[in-house]
């Protein structure tokens, strides 16, 4: 399932939450919507989920405008988590899957394996309220993916998860991606997006400021520099063609390359003359890029987790 947003706009009163946003997420891609709190991520996601309607613009799934049935093929994990506290884990999973019109006969055999996979096997018949917060998050994640959605929308997926559970869920997500599930992922923590996403859409104050594949974005904003760690004398590096500048720390060098110079060519030139211990292309982090292009106050980007709903 591929997702396409065309010039969507949403205003609440006089506040424009999302302004003229277009975005394309190919099938089987993991797309990260990143931006500071209040940038319009949740509003965008709610419009994709058809929870709020855009004032203008179109949202297309596989080229069709969304309708009531599309919900059945989408898994949605909202930023605000919540489950029926008085139900058992099994009941919650079953009810949620039934609400996705997933066949009853297919639900029952999947409950056990999913709970096992999330280390919740022994809680199957326990009430949700008996589970810790982290366990409830994992349980909710199961309800998001059990009905085999074609599109998975995860709002601030990792907030509140410990490293172990983060790893567990990341594995599932990569697994789903391999099977062709399209994943839309929002976060204000750039490092996570950097590790997981193939595709990035940065928004700030309701506007898209950047979008493209992670590689494109990085090379577009890269300074074309390489890091070199060697055994031996590296003085010759300064005279290689295409090298503009060198910062020499004896065994560790930072090279700034002339425009159009491929880092590969430098590596080939160095190999054989000295022993190369490490060669790395210096890439700006998403965080750096975001600060650079969105011209936002850096403090906004890693702001505290949002509490209470708003038209973010």
């Amino acid at each position: 399932m591929y997702l396409r947003l065309e010039n969507i706009r949403k205003a609440f009163d006089t506040k424009v939450a999302v302004d003229n946003l277009s975005l394309e997420v190919p099938r089987g891609a993991i797309c990260g919507i990143i931006g500071p709190n209040g940038a319009g991520k949740t509003t965008t996601i709610r419009m994709v989920m058809n929870i709020t309607a855009p004032d203008s613009g179109r949202i297309l799934l596989d080229g069709h405008q969304v309708d009531g049935d599309f919900r059945n093929h989408v898994g949605y994990l909202p930023e605000e988590r919540g489950l029926y506290k008085k139900m058992t884990c099994e009941q919650v999973i079953t009810y949620m899957a039934e609400l996705k019109a997933y066949p009853k006969a297919k639900i029952a055999p999947k409950v056990g394996p999913w709970l096992e996979r999330m280390d919740l096997g022994q809680y199957r018949y326990r009430k949700v309220e008996e589970l810790s917060k982290g366990m409830q998050q994992k349980l909710q994640f199961i309800t998001t993916v059990l009905h085999e959605p074609d599109l998975l929308i995860l709002d601030e997926l990792f907030s509140g998860l410990d490293p172990l559970n983060t790893e567990l869920i990341k594995d599932v997500i990569l697994d789903l991606k391999r099977r062709g599930t399209t994943i839309l992922f929002s976060t204000h923590v750039m490092e996570q997006a950097e590790k997981l996403c193939d595709h990035i859409c940065m928004i700030s104050h309701g506007r898209k400021v950047l979008d493209g594949s992670l590689g494109d974005v990085k090379s577009r904003f890269g300074k074309n520099a390489v890091q070199l760690e060697i055994d031996g004398d590296g003085a010759f590096v300064r005279s290689l063609p295409g090298v503009k500048d060198v910062t020499d720390f004896n065994r560790y060098l930072e090279l700034t390359l002339a425009d159009g110079t491929e880092p590969d060519a430098i590596l080939r030139a160095v190999l054989g003359r000295v022993k190369v211990r490490r060669f790395a292309i210096v890439e700006p982090s998403l965080y750096d890029i975001f600060i650079d292009i969105a011209k936002v106050d850096p403090s906004e980007v890693h702001g505290p987790a949002k509490t209470g709903g708003s038209h973010a």
Partner: peptide, 16 residues
């Protein structure tokens, strides 16, 4: 209850 326990948003992603 569904509002305070924040189930509502999940619900409306499945049913209108």
């Amino acid at each position: 209850e569904e509002k305070t326990s924040r189930i509502m948003e999940v619900m409306v992603s499945s049913v209108s």
